[in-house]
Amino acid sequence: MYEPIRTKSVHSMADDAGFPHRSREEELDIQLAGHLAALLAVTDELRALAPDAGLDAAADRLAAQVARLRGGARPPRASVAAAIRPHGSTRGRDPQPHVAALHQRAHALAGRALVVAASRADTAAAILAAERMDAHADATRLVGAS
């Protein structure tokens, strides 16, 4: 009545010795690098909208951490002039609501990075993420007060 199954189940294929497995540490490195790279992208966009030496230094530190986690591969960086703006140019419009939203997003990304860095016991990345959380929380309050 039913045709017999002729292929291996996905469960037995996953146990195959030829299948490449990553360690928990490798998975956490990949996840942390992803969160820090996303934070770097938001930081680069903030640098375009509201230039600040503190953001420049933070972007350089984030890029260095991502490169370290990726075995030396530098993350792609958007040039400040080419950063994406909401619905085109902000000329003639108040960019403050967008800047505030970017600071909130950066704060959330830094929080995610902090959680992964703490579970990985990566002190350097955890300190950087905590510093970025504080900076973006302060910036969100300042932008919101303007």
Rank of each mutant, 00 (worst) to 15 (best):
20 P>A: 10
132 R>F: 04
102 L>C: 05
50 A>H: 08
19 F>W: 02
31 Q>Y: 00
134 D>C: 03
103 H>N: 10
107 H>K: 07
131 E>Q: 13
124 A>W: 08
48 A>K: 07
22 R>I: 13
111 G>N: 11
109 L>F: 01
41 A>L: 06
40 L>K: 02
118 A>H: 15
16 D>V: 00
139 A>G: 05
66 V>S: 03
109 L>Y: 00
116 V>P: 00
115 V>M: 04
78 A>S: 13
40 L>P: 02
94 D>F: 04
144 G>Y: 04
133 M>Y: 08
114 L>A: 14
42 V>C: 08
17 A>Y: 00
38 A>T: 11
80 V>D: 08
130 A>R: 14
30 I>D: 09
48 A>H: 10
72 G>M: 05
52 D>L: 15
21 H>P: 00
77 R>Q: 14
85 R>E: 10
101 A>I: 02
114 L>G: 09
40 L>G: 01
128 L>H: 07
20 P>G: 02
126 A>W: 00
54 G>I: 04
100 A>S: 13
102 L>K: 08
42 V>A: 12
109 L>K: 06
16 D>N: 07
93 R>A: 12
130 A>Y: 07
113 A>R: 14
61 R>G: 00
78 A>M: 10
107 H>M: 13
70 R>S: 12
90 T>Y: 02
53 A>D: 15
96 Q>I: 12
93 R>E: 07
82 A>H: 01
2 Y>T: 11
22 R>W: 02
28 L>R: 06
38 A>Y: 01
74 R>P: 10
34 G>D: 03
7 T>L: 14
86 P>H: 06
83 A>Y: 00
3 E>A: 12
59 A>G: 14
102 L>G: 01
107 H>E: 11
106 A>H: 04
25 E>A: 10
44 D>K: 06
101 A>L: 05
122 D>T: 14
146 S>F: 08
14 A>C: 05
143 V>D: 02
7 T>W: 05
9 S>C: 13
80 V>E: 12
131 E>W: 02
121 A>T: 13
137 A>D: 13
2 Y>N: 12
108 A>L: 15
4 P>H: 10
25 E>Y: 05
94 D>A: 09
113 A>H: 11
88 G>Q: 04
98 H>F: 15
13 M>W: 00
118 A>Q: 15
41 A>R: 11
51 P>E: 08
75 P>V: 11
112 R>T: 04
137 A>C: 09
24 R>K: 09
79 S>G: 09
46 L>M: 15
45 E>N: 07
93 R>D: 03
97 P>C: 06
54 G>H: 01
63 A>Q: 05
118 A>N: 15
112 R>C: 08
114 L>M: 14
22 R>D: 04
102 L>T: 01
30 I>T: 12
54 G>M: 09
35 H>S: 13
29 D>S: 11
18 G>D: 14
128 L>E: 12
91 R>L: 12
131 E>F: 01
110 A>H: 00
95 P>R: 00
50 A>Y: 02
11 H>N: 13
73 A>L: 12
110 A>S: 11
108 A>M: 12
57 A>W: 04
58 A>Y: 00
41 A>G: 05
34 G>S: 07
16 D>S: 03
62 L>R: 06
88 G>H: 08
143 V>T: 05
107 H>R: 10
121 A>P: 00
143 V>Q: 03
95 P>D: 02
65 Q>V: 14
34 G>Y: 03
131 E>V: 06
87 H>Q: 05
14 A>N: 03
21 H>V: 12
2 Y>F: 03
80 V>L: 13
15 D>M: 11
